[in-house]
């Protein structure tokens, strides 16, 4: 009987993998950061499957600054907050905006970056301005459970809003003409428009930030009880802001300041 228990336990350990989160000493373990790597240039997978991007570089630099060992893993966007609260990961660094809605469930570090939302349309689109009434009866693509989805739902009442699992999916449908417009972060959209696939489309313009919906920039999401981890991240971000590392990463990706105003 004891043998069976032992066998079952070791099997379970093999399949499930015991994670030593009992240790609250974060420097002693690897901090597991979840990201939805379908959001270039902030986070994406390169052809070898490695997770790369602005957020990854900033996160790794911030971890290093406070001597944390960090590791990124790919997560499904819709399930990324449940994954955090359930303990599958320790933090979220995935261009997640700090909103009131999310603060009910999880906590956030200080700001990582802040860029405005924008709308992209096909080049031959009859829509000429970001006047919201122009989208009545049009199909508008957004990634589900994002601030953009919340915005579209609230502000584009007359539009047919389509919710996509990843940014890649709405890009495919925008270039095929299935969508009349797509709404997302300005950096994500304009980076895509620069690629051959984005040749179909153009940037219509940026939208005015609605603080209640869009929040105050993106941050690193942590569980509410992990205030010590949040403090470590804050210290790390402050350190790389101060020593020029952040600017170095910023300049590697962008020709403008992604951090936004204070």
């Amino acid at each position: 009987m004891r043998l069976t228990v032992l066998a079952v336990a070791s099997l379970a350990a093999m399949i499930v993998g015991i994670t030593g989160a009992s240790a609250k000493d974060w420097t002693a373990t690897t901090v597991r950061i979840g990201t939805d790597a379908t959001y270039p240039p902030f986070e994406s997978q390169d052809s070898s499957g490695k997770i790369v991007g602005f957020d990854v570089d900033v996160g790794m630099a911030a971890c290093e600054a406070v001597s944390l060992k960090c590791e990124f893993s790919n997560q499904d966007w819709d399930g990324i907050i449940p994954a955090l609260t359930a303990g599958k990961i320790d933090a979220i660094l995935s261009s997640m905006s700090i909103t009131e809605e999310r603060l009910k469930t999880i906590d956030f570090s200080d700001k990582v970056y802040n860029t405005p939302p924008a709308i992209a349309v096909p080049k031959d689109s009859p829509i000429t301005s970001v006047d919201l009434s122009a989208f009545d009866g049009k199909s508008v693509g957004v990634q589900s459970s994002t601030t953009h989805a919340a915005y579209a739902e609230q502000e584009l009442k007359g539009a047919d809003v389509k919710y996509y699992k990843t940014a890649d999916d709405y890009k495919l449908d925008l270039s095929s003409g299935r969508l009349d417009a797509a709404m997302d972060d300005v950096v994500v959209l304009s980076e895509w428009l620069k690629t051959p696939d984005g040749a179909c489309c153009k940037l219509l313009g940026t939208l005015k930030l609605v603080p209640e919906i869009h929040g105050k920039g993106t941050g690193i999401g942590v569980r509410k009880e992990d205030t010590d981890l949040k403090e470590l991240f804050n210290k790390g971000i402050a350190a790389i802001r101060a020593n020029g590392k952040y600017k170095e990463i910023n300049d590697k990706y962008f020709d403008f300041d992604a951090y936004g105003g204070e």
């Binding site: 819709d78 907050i81 449940p82 609260t85 469930t105 589900s144 459970s145 919710y163």
Partner: peptide, 9 residues
């Protein structure tokens, strides 16, 4: 259902 789950968890 997935939409609602992504809003309410």
């Amino acid at each position: 259902t997935r939409y609602v789950f992504s809003k309410t968890y």
